[in-house]
Design a protein around this nucleic acid. Structure first.
Length: 419
RNA sequence: GGUGGAGUCGCCUAGUGGCCGAGGGCGCACGCCUCGAAAGCGUGUGAUGGGGCAACUCAUCCGUGGGUUCAAAUCCCACCUCCACCGCCA
């Protein structure tokens, strides 16, 4: 949720941001108008209520006829208060509803435009060249006894899979390495709930434009999270926290409906309904958020270096930002059989947008409460297996294990197994 | 799932329709005292929103949401959470 006071002081900033996202900028006028009407209705209610309160006290002291007269007037007042309250509440609700549809203000410097308008900030490493026809991750994974899509589909349906044998071990290795790195940098390790209440889902901005992506359990009024960002942001919901920054690293399964992606990435484990992820999450002073964002990106790059993958970093354009994000950097690894880069990590600076919705505050220098900034970034996911298998494959169908993962797997090479 | 009990300011607690515009204690902050500290004494002490340059001021908030009433922490209804016991269970 954006700050109404900022909006009043500098409405142009939101207009510019809305245009950078390719969204309606006339919402600014509607917000300002509603806000003014709301404040005036609130004032009316408050002065009526103040009158009612002082009046009530005189009723309690009065006797006989005098009391009856006062009571008649009090009833009238009560009716007026009720109406003024209803009107103020109605406008407040209307404003809040509209305000909640407005995405975060895009950070200055982010590219304008849509999905294709990203800017490549950096390319690290070089895509491998093979003296043979490289196999895709699924073919490799099946030969290694690492991935079983068929049985995934049998038991759970399309876009579900089993990681088996070295595949399961590889994922555990990757996620453990990620946890270890973050813990080493002072992050607090977390294993969060993956079913959350509507407030947490709504507060993190996932029930807006992307609501169709989210699994819902109507019987329980709970949602399955698509990322541990949700329970991590909710962790300090309705709190005033001290000692910023607070950094958490969570290991969780993630669930996504992938509605609207029919026919896209149907092969293998690139786009699936359930995967595991290690996610970094920071609460920090909004003044430090930009720096913190760059730190998260550095930590992601460090992980990518450890698994020895060629990748590039992109600066996502405004129109491709999530509701809550003001700026987003993705690291995309080279996928040889697709001859293109695919997203492995994503780090977003949500500034105070989520914190305002979730009411996570800290005290500023003057002792006033202010929303904090929240940021998140990926440190490893199941999808990394795709890039590792494909980039480190050899002619005989075996796959070299990156050095950093060897001690977790207890081997240097993954060998094909007999069917 | 059932039955019973409980949810009041950071923590503990008082509070059974108007004197609650929520009292007290602890903690915390500041001051006095002291060579310094402890103890003691004094003062202050939340959140959200509105108005104001500001000091300040007004309204709302006693788990949440409704309701009754001129007036609700207090009465009524529903829900949530916690505790205890019972039942069921990977």
């Amino acid at each position: 949720m954006i700050d109404l006071r900022t909006l009043r002081d500098d409405p142009e900033r939101l207009r510019v941001s809305q245009r950078a996202r390719g969204e309606d900028d006339t919402v600014v006028e509607r917000l300002l108008d509603l806000d003014e009407r709301r404040r005036s209705a609130l004032s009316s209610f408050e002065s009526l209520r103040a009158e009612q309160k002082s009046f009530g006290r005189s009723v309690s002291k009065a006797q006989g006829d005098e009391r009856q007269k006062l009571l008649d007037r009090a009833k009238e007042l009560a009716q007026q208060v009720k109406e003024a309250d209803a009107e103020a509440q109605r406008l407040d609700q209307e404003l809040t509803e509209l305000l909640r549809t407005v995405p975060n203000i895009v950070e200055e410097g982010a590219p304008a435009g849509g999905e294709e308008d990203y800017v490549v900030l950096e390319t690290v490493g070089t895509p491998p060249t093979f003296a043979f026809e490289p196999k895709d991750h699924l073919e490799l994974g099946e030969a290694l006894g690492a991935i079983d899509m068929e049985r995934g589909a049998k038991v759970a349906g399309a876009r579900f899979f089993y990681l088996t044998g070295v595949g399961a071990q590889l994922q555990l290795a990757l996620l453990n390495l990620a946890m270890e790195q973050a813990i080493g940098y002072g992050f607090t390790a977390m294993v969060p709930p993956v079913l959350v209440k509507p407030e947490a889902m709504e507060g993190t901005g996932f029930l807006g434009a992307h609501a169709a992506e989210v699994y819902q359990l109507p019987q329980e009024d709970l949602y399955l999270v698509g990322t541990s960002e949700v329970p991590l942001a909710g962790y300090h919901m309705n709190e005033i926290i001290s000692d910023l920054p607070r950094r958490y690293v969570a290991w969780s399964s993630c669930f996504r409906r992938e509605a609207g992606s029919y026919g896209k990435d149907t092969r293998g484990i690139i786009r699936v309904h359930q995967f595991d992820k290690v996610e970094m999450f920071s609460y920090c002073d909004p003044a430090d958020a930009h720096e913190e964002h760059l730190r998260l990106l550095e930590w992601e790059k460090e992980m990518l270096a450890k698994v020895e993958l060629p990748y590039r970093v992109i600066d996502t354009a405004g129109g491709d930002l999530g509701t809550s994000a003001a700026r987003k950097y993705d690291c995309e690894a080279w996928v040889p059989t697709q001859k293109r880069y695919r997203e492995l990590t994503s780090t977003s600076n949500c500034t105070d947008f989520q914190a305002r919705r979730l009411s996570v505050r800290h005290r500023d220098g003057n002792g006033r409460t202010r929303p904090v900034a929240t940021l998140n970034g990926t440190l490893a996911t199941t999808r990394w297996i795709v890039a590792i298998l494909e980039n480190h494959q050899q002619a005989d169908g075996s796959v070299l294990v990156p050095k950093a993962l060897q001690r977790f797997l207890g081997r240097e090479v993954l060998e094909p197994v007999a069917k």
